[in-house]
Amino acid sequence: MKKVIYYKNLQVKPDERLIMTRLGYRSGTAADEGLRQKIAGDIARAVALCRVKGAFLRAPVRVEDGRVVIMDEYELPGRSLAGFLAGCHECVLMASTAGREITRRIEAEMAQGNASRAVVMDATASEMADGGLDVIMKIQNGLLIKEGRRLTKRRYSPGYGDMPIECQKIIFHLLQLQDLEMGMTEAGMLVPEKSVIAIAGITL
């Protein structure tokens, strides 16, 4: 098996607009300066508590008959994923987690009745985990450019389209995510809660 690269501290700068969008903010939503400052403070707290780690593996991929086969061995079902990776001979498997501390703090804030802070922290942590994948893709694109190649602009996560959530188990295994202190429930949910797995293609 190829070697998995682990990142123990990905430098993620969350996009505040995306956090606000996760919280349901739209143009026309009333949010005065005082509320914005409170939210900014809660975001800063959450960011400080997130320890974004990630993992990355470059692997050969074959697309055939509406299915994706990684390393000639591991099959990922789903026609939409097959369409997404069409033409790619290599792919990257990646994962990112915001860590356990932030999850504990969100639960504590909710238990203490600070629901507004908890929801902001929850949205921030989701964005931080997603941001971890952005950073991994940026790092890999920086290396791939020397080969005249790049990653597909988008990435695909189990549970979206027709890619079953169960695929997380295969990618979890290939990335050996227990080495990042991550785990998985029987139902295929990632632990810590704010974690995400994805696949992207390597293209010209």
Partner: peptide, 21 residues
């Protein structure tokens, strides 16, 4: 009502809930 109409968003819904509590 404001939340349904997207005049309020989640933090405001929660702040009101906290103040009611």
């Amino acid at each position: 009502r404001r939340f349904e109409n997207k005049e309020y968003f989640l933090p405001q819904l929660m702040l009101s809930a906290e103040s009611a509590k």
